[in-house]
Computed example of a mutant assay.
Amino acid sequence: MSERLTRVLQLGIVLVVAVVAAVVSWFIFFDIPADLTDLLGVLLVIATVVAAIQLGGRIANAAFPSYDVAEVAVEGPITRDGGRGPIPGGAIGTPADDIVEQIDAASEDTHAEALLLKLNTPGGEVLPSDDIRRAAAEFDGPTVAYATDVCASGGYWIASGCDELWSHDASVVGSIGVIGSSVNASELADRLGITYERFAAGKYKDAGNVLKEPTDDEREYLQGLIDDYYDDFVETVAEGREMDPETIRETEARVYLGEEASAIGLVDELGTRADVEDRLAALLDRDEVTVEEFTPQAGLMARLRGSAERVAYSFGAGVASTLDADDGFTFRF
């Protein structure tokens, strides 16, 4: 169905709904009640028609969608539940399950022929990030990732599941690395007279516990986990981005501005949002595309909280995937 015909059908539905509402409201609010003033009746008719036009527009958009590209945004740190922000009940980022749900909805929508994944994230937890990457990779159609402010660590992991990655020339891109950390408070505990009593089954169960000095063997064990995570990260990115693994290792987990990231192959193209839409139009072999944003349903207060918190977290790179063990040791991509 052509875009022009779609617009005509949408307009037709809106007009029909408006006319029906006008006729019904005229009889209900003006013609039948003899004690209502003419002015009140007219105002009620107008109010009803306006509401009907809005309803008709939603019905028309649902019946004859005019979009051909679905946009899903990944903003803020990536966690399973969106994380906890400074405002009670607020979320720092978008819950990964919600993002996956919207990508899946786009996959099932016959009108969404391509996927635009907007990335503005410093990274996030391992499995939630990978869930988003897999969902994008499984989309049946062209997929383009677009980095706005930051596409680092877990964000870059997600981008590796898309066909192309675009960014601004000043976007922050990269941070392909892994860090493991644990606070060592053993000396402070000694000064305070706090002792550590070990009750554990398994040699390495309490490796990295904050109240004891790690042994050389434990350090080697934990570093081995870091190395395994890093190898997996490099292999996944290399496969998804069709890059030489050694090129990725040579970045040494640095972040780059978009222009330099493009020069070394971390980014396919530099451009604006309009350039990205032109590219999607070329991939779909048409003159232009219409983008529809797929977002999870949320109340007004939740949306206001999310907007405020995303401003605070919109710029920051390097903090990505976290996996907290019960012994206090933390892994981060």
Rank of each mutant, 00 (worst) to 15 (best):
M1N: 09
S2T: 14
R4P: 11
V8A: 11
L11W: 06
V17Q: 04
V20H: 06
V23W: 10
I28D: 00
A34I: 14
L36R: 15
D38Y: 13
G41S: 00
I46L: 14
A52Q: 01
Q54R: 09
L55R: 02
R58Q: 08
I59V: 15
N61A: 10
A70S: 06
A73K: 05
A73M: 00
I78H: 05
T79P: 07
R80Q: 15
D81Q: 13
G82E: 12
G82F: 13
I87L: 10
P88M: 09
G90K: 00
E101S: 04
S107F: 05
T110G: 06
T110R: 09
H111E: 13
A112L: 05
A112E: 03
E113W: 00
G124L: 09
S129T: 04
S129A: 14
D130P: 01
D130L: 07
D131I: 02
D131Q: 12
R133D: 04
R134F: 04
R134Q: 11
A135D: 07
D140I: 02
T143G: 10
D149G: 03
S153N: 04
G155F: 05
Y156G: 05
A159K: 05
S160P: 06
D163C: 01
L165N: 03
S175A: 14
I176C: 04
G180I: 12
S181A: 15
V183W: 10
S186L: 11
L188H: 13
L192D: 13
E197W: 11
R198L: 14
A201R: 13
G202M: 07
N209Y: 14
V210E: 05
T215W: 11
E218G: 15
Q223C: 09
Y230D: 14
D231S: 08
D232I: 09
V234F: 01
E235D: 12
E239T: 06
G240C: 05
R241P: 01
D244K: 04
P245A: 08
T251A: 06
T251F: 02
A253F: 01
Y256D: 01
L257W: 14
G258D: 07
E259Q: 09
E260F: 02
I264Y: 02
V267Y: 02
L270Q: 15
G271E: 10
V276C: 00
R279N: 14
A282F: 06
L283Y: 07
L283I: 04
L284H: 07
D285E: 10
R286I: 09
R286D: 08
E288N: 12
E288F: 12
V289K: 07
F294L: 13
L300Q: 10
L304Q: 15
R305T: 10
S307G: 08
A308M: 15
Y313L: 09
S321D: 08
L323H: 11
D327R: 15
D327L: 07
